[in-house]
């Protein structure tokens, strides 16, 4: 499929191309090469700082001790725990609803107006500012309950995970060939049985990809947690109380004037980034496995 462009320009046609056009060609692509260099260099610089400063702050204490008062020894254990708990809770709420909504879009609602409206709204929610989600949960949960809580935090993460789940599960379910659905229907299966015994198993890798992407998306979210889960300096396992979490701790510690806090903030940032990148790589790997199985 790929065109043999270079040879064509330099060879047969190249002889007749006017100098001005040839110069434009070179200049244009040189500029795009320079842009790539700039972009890659800036992003590499960012990653380099993150890794080097993050590793400086890394120590066993990071995983063993709770967030310290300035000047004393401490770690991020309570924040790591809180982040894991709220991320998992968020996925536990947003995941199933997202999968079911995706199932509706791909199976029951195909071609209906409702489905296309929902698809559109979902795409908009996918890129809505996350701080607004935090405000929303604050107004409906925190205001009514009267205090910040880990549940409110998990809820706002669920709202952010939901559109991701809807989008990926719909896309992945649509990759399942219709002939499979027809075969299942011909054996007398109702749509739900077709979905559970044919469509879901066939799309398993793809659905898992969506799940990983959703976890990756919410595990670094900071803005929606600022005024839902708030923060907690101590180890807390009570979901109805404010709970520490990595992003908010990073925010608070990085903005502080204390050097040991800033050090911990870098360590936390490295932890989150590593976690998110591992998830994203895993998701890509699964997705390509899912695609090659479909075409193979």
């Amino acid at each position: 499929m790929r065109v043999q462009r270079r040879r064509r320009v330099a060879g047969v046609v190249g002889a007749t191309v006017q100098p001005r056009r040839r110069i434009m060609n070179v200049v244009g692509f040189a500029l795009s090469g320079v842009a790539t260099l700039i972009g890659v260099a800036v992003l590499a610089a960012l990653l380099w700082t993150l890794v080097s400063r993050g590793l400086q702050g890394m120590s066993p204490a990071v995983f063993q001790l709770s967030t310290p008062a300035p000047g004393s020894e401490g770690g991020l254990a309570n924040a790591i725990f809180g982040s894991l708990v709220m991320t998992m809770l968020g996925i536990a709420i947003g995941g199933p609803i997202g999968l079911l909504a995706g199932t509706y879009l791909s199976e029951y609602g195909r071609g209906t107006v409702l489905a296309s409206v929902i698809r559109f709204i979902n795409d908009v929610l996918l890129s809505a500012p996350s701080i607004v989600v935090g405000l929303f949960v604050y107004t409906i949960v925190v205001m009514n309950v009267g205090h910040f809580s880990a549940i409110a935090g998990a809820l706002s993460l669920a709202i952010i995970a939901l559109p991701v789940m809807v989008r990926t599960s719909e896309d992945m379910l649509q990759l399942v060939p219709n002939s499979l659905r027809e075969a299942s229907a011909a054996l007398g299966a109702n749509p739900w049985r077709t979905v559970f015994s044919t469509v879901y198993p066939a799309a398993r890798n793809g659905l898992l990809t969506g799940l990983l992407l959703a976890v990756a998306r919410i595990s670094g979210e900071t803005a929606p947690l600022l005024f839902t889960a708030l923060n907690n300096q101590f180890w807390n396992t009570d979901l109805t109380k404010p709970m520490a979490n990595l992003p908010v701790v990073i925010f608070q510690f990085a903005m502080s004037p204390y050097e040991d806090w800033q050090q911990l903030a870098w360590a936390g940032a490295l932890l989150i980034t590593t976690f998110v990148l591992v998830l994203s790589v895993g998701a890509r790997f699964l997705a390509s496995a899912a695609r090659s199985r479909k075409s193979g």
Binding site: L100, Y108, I118, V166, W192
Partner: peptide
């Protein structure tokens, strides 16, 4: 029966997405 329940459940989930926007 399961079919009706599942259909209802997935439609409701899809409507939740709509409701979320309105709710916000």
């Amino acid at each position: 029966r399961v079919e009706r329940a599942f259909r209802g459940l997935s439609t409701t989930s899809a409507i939740i997405v709509l409701a979320l926007l309105g709710g916000v």
